[in-house]
Amino acid sequence: MAWMTRLKLLHARTERRFPVLSELTSRLVSANLLDSATRLAAQAFLAAVPLLFAIAAFTPQSIRDQLRESLRAMFGLTGRSDLELGQVLEHPSDDGLRQTTGFVGLVVALASATSFSRVMARVCERAWRLPRAKTRIAAWRWVAWLLVLVLVVLLQGPVREGFGVGLWLGTILFFLVSTGVWLLTQHLLLAGRMPWLPLLPGALLAAGATSALALTARIYIPTALNRALAEYGSLGLILTLLSWLIVVSAAVVASVTIGAVLVQDWTERRDGSEDGE
C-alpha cells in the first residue's frame, strides 16, 4: 500500500538524519520499559511494606513520627489513608509481639530489598548495555543503596517543606536531592563500572521526572487513596499505590535509558570527529 511505503521511507529517512532516535527506540524496546517498570514497582512495594513494620517495631517514637511526616509530605495523606499509616507505625504494646514482628519484618525487608536492588541494577545495566555484575562485587552495594533510600525517605518531610522556608525552596531541594540519588543509584548498582560524569544526564532526567510526579502526587494520591479505601478497603490502597509506583518506575527507567543513549551517541560522534581529523 502507498501509505505503508511512505511510512517506511519516512522511517528510513529519520534513521539516517537522527540515528540517536533509532538507537533510543531500540534501547527502550530492549529494556522492556513497561515490564521493567512493573517489576521495579512491585519490588519497591514488597520492600517498603515489611520495612514499615520493622521501623515501627525497632525504632524510637521520634523516627516513626519523622517517617509519618515524610510520607504525608510525599503523598499529601489525609483522612482515612493517614489513619491507616498511623496504625502501621504505631508502637506495639506487647513487647514480645513487637520483637517477633520486628525481627521477621526486618529479615523480610532485607530479603525484599535485595530483590528490589537487583531489579534496579538490571535496569541500569540494560540502559548502558553492560553485563550483570558479579554478586560478590555488587552485594554490599545493594544494601548500601537501600540504606541511602531509607535516609532520603526519612528526610522527605523537611526537604519538601524547604526546611520551613516554603514549597518553592522545597521543590529546588527535592530536585537537587533526587539528582544526587539517581546519580549515586547508577554508580552504585553498576558496581562503579561507569564514571560519574556520563551518569549525570540520566540522573538529571530522572530527577526532573520524579520532581514533576512528586508535585502531582500531592494532588492525585490523597483523593485516590481515600476513595479506594472507601470502596475496596486495603486492596484498593494496594492497587492505587502500585499503579502510582509503576508510573514513577516507568519514568525512571525511561530517564536512565535516554541519558545513557544520549551520552553514548555524543561519545561516538566526538570519537568519530577526532578520527576524521
Rank of each mutant, 00 (worst) to 15 (best):
A2W: 08
A2H: 11
M4A: 13
T5G: 03
L9E: 12
L10V: 04
H11W: 11
H11M: 08
T14Q: 13
E15N: 12
R17Y: 12
F18N: 10
P19K: 10
V20P: 02
L21G: 09
L21T: 10
S22F: 13
E23H: 14
L24S: 11
L24K: 00
T25P: 04
T25N: 14
T25I: 13
S26Q: 15
S30K: 15
L40N: 08
A41L: 07
F45C: 01
A47N: 09
L51H: 02
L52V: 07
L52A: 13
A54V: 05
A57E: 05
S62M: 09
D65L: 07
D65Q: 13
R68V: 11
R68M: 11
L71E: 06
R72V: 14
R72M: 10
R72C: 09
A73Q: 11
G79R: 08
R80P: 02
R80D: 14
L83K: 10
E84Q: 09
L85R: 08
G86H: 06
H91P: 01
H91E: 15
P92L: 05
D95N: 09
L97E: 07
R98I: 09
G102V: 02
G102T: 06
V104E: 03
L106T: 15
S112C: 15
S117I: 07
R118C: 00
V119N: 10
C124T: 02
E125T: 05
R126G: 02
W128P: 01
L130H: 08
L130Y: 07
R132H: 09
R132G: 10
A133C: 05
K134V: 07
A138F: 03
R141K: 13
L147E: 10
L149T: 00
L151F: 12
L151C: 03
V152N: 02
L154K: 06
L155A: 15
L155P: 03
Q156Y: 12
P158W: 04
R160W: 02
E161S: 13
E161N: 13
F163P: 03
V165Y: 12
V165L: 13
G166T: 04
L167V: 13
L169G: 04
G170I: 01
T171P: 03
T171M: 06
I172D: 00
I172Q: 02
F174M: 08
S178I: 04
T179S: 12
T185S: 14
L189C: 06
L189Y: 01
L190T: 13
G192I: 06
P195E: 11
P195H: 04
G202V: 05
A203T: 06
L205R: 04
S211G: 07
A212E: 04
A214T: 09
L215G: 12
L215N: 07
T216D: 01
R218T: 14
A224S: 09
A224H: 05
A224M: 08
A228D: 03
Y232M: 08
Y232H: 13
Y232V: 00
S234I: 09
S234D: 05
L237V: 01
T240H: 04
L242P: 01
L245G: 06
I246P: 00
V247Y: 04
V248W: 10
A251G: 13
V252N: 06
S255L: 05
V261M: 09
V261W: 11
V263H: 09
V263A: 10
Q264W: 02
Q264Y: 00
T267R: 15
E268Q: 15
E268D: 15
R269F: 03
R270P: 06
D271S: 14
G272S: 15
E277L: 14
